[in-house]
């Protein structure tokens, strides 16, 4: 019973988290600086910044770029604590996998010691390389996360369309988004459905069978849905052409943003 409750709680919790993480557009709806930019211009600026981050090979530049990122966080009404947490989660992972071995690369010894009887030497080149690596990852991740949370999902898709990414690709992205939503919805509803009929105690086996059955029916449903959606598209004149309704309008502020980005990248 207790274990059951634990599983139940964690399933419900995970679903709620997923929903929150993928579908909450709370930050994108605030009226901060980044949110007010034309998505096309914003994304162009971010691409430039990312490119610069990827090719930068000294620490100062990277620190500077990271500083810009944090500044953007502050003027876009993103909670700094939330943002740092979300981006720093990745860092230990990367540093452990790739950064750490780099520490012990060849070069002038900076520190040496014994670990489990093995002599380890940290070289200054190694330390420097590891730092640059971690900084670069951190900055890239931060820019990507920032762009992601300040832009609404559909705007990203729309910009992809406007940038002439083939529609089939964009549509698949959109559809997967929709299926994840549907899937979470169905699991939640099934769960509620079972609960309303058998109470809160769900044995493992039937539960498992129900989930499996639901995956089958989800598959069938999505097949049917696809056919019907296709009919609906036909009915409104779809002939397989790429047509996007762009109502984005670049204003002075957007040009200012792009100019600032280019200026900064040019100086450093």
């Amino acid at each position: 019973m207790k274990a059951n409750n634990f599983i139940e709680r964690s399933i419900v919790g995970t679903l709620a988290f997923l929903r929150e993480a993928i579908f909450s557009q709370e930050i994108a709806l605030q009226n901060g600086f980044l949110q007010s930019l034309d998505p096309r211009v914003k994304i162009t600026g971010f691409l430039l910044l990312l490119l610069k981050t990827l090719i930068a090979c000294d620490l100062h530049t990277l620190f500077f770029l990271y500083g810009i990122c944090l500044l953007l966080v502050l003027i876009s009404k993103v909670g700094p604590g939330f943002f740092l947490l979300r981006t720093w989660v990745f860092i230990p992972l990367f540093s452990l996998c790739i950064g750490l071995p780099a520490l012990f690369g060849p070069g002038d010894p900076l520190w040496s010691g014994y670990f489990l009887g093995i002599k380890l030497v940290i070289s200054s080149q190694g330390l420097f390389g590891a730092l640059i690596f971690v900084m670069r990852v951190l900055t890239c991740v931060s820019f990507v996360v920032l762009l992601n949370i300040t832009t609404r999902h559909f705007e990203l898709l729309k910009v992809l369309r406007i940038f002439k990414v083939p529609q089939i690709f964009v549509m698949t992205l959109g559809m997967s988004y929709r299926y994840i939503f549907l899937f979470i919805e169905i699991i939640q509803n099934t769960y509620l459905g079972i609960k309303s009929r058998v109470g809160s105690v769900i044995c493992y086996r039937p539960g498992q069978r129900l989930v499996a059955w639901n995956i089958v029916s989800l598959w069938n449903y999505s097949l049917l849905l696809n056919q019907e959606v296709y009919k609906a598209m036909l009915s409104r004149g779809y002939r397989g052409e790429d047509l996007a309704w762009s109502d984005f309008r670049a204003r002075g502020r957007d040009l200012g943003w792009l100019a600032a980005v280019i200026l900064i990248l040019w100086i450093i």
């Binding site: 559909f154 729309k158 004149g237 047509l243 309704w245």
Partner: peptide, 15 residues
């Protein structure tokens, strides 16, 4: 089937 209501409404006339 479009990402937003607005795009959905204009889908027909655009096509």
């Amino acid at each position: 089937f479009c990402p937003t209501v607005k795009e959905d409404i204009v889908f027909g006339p655009l096509n």
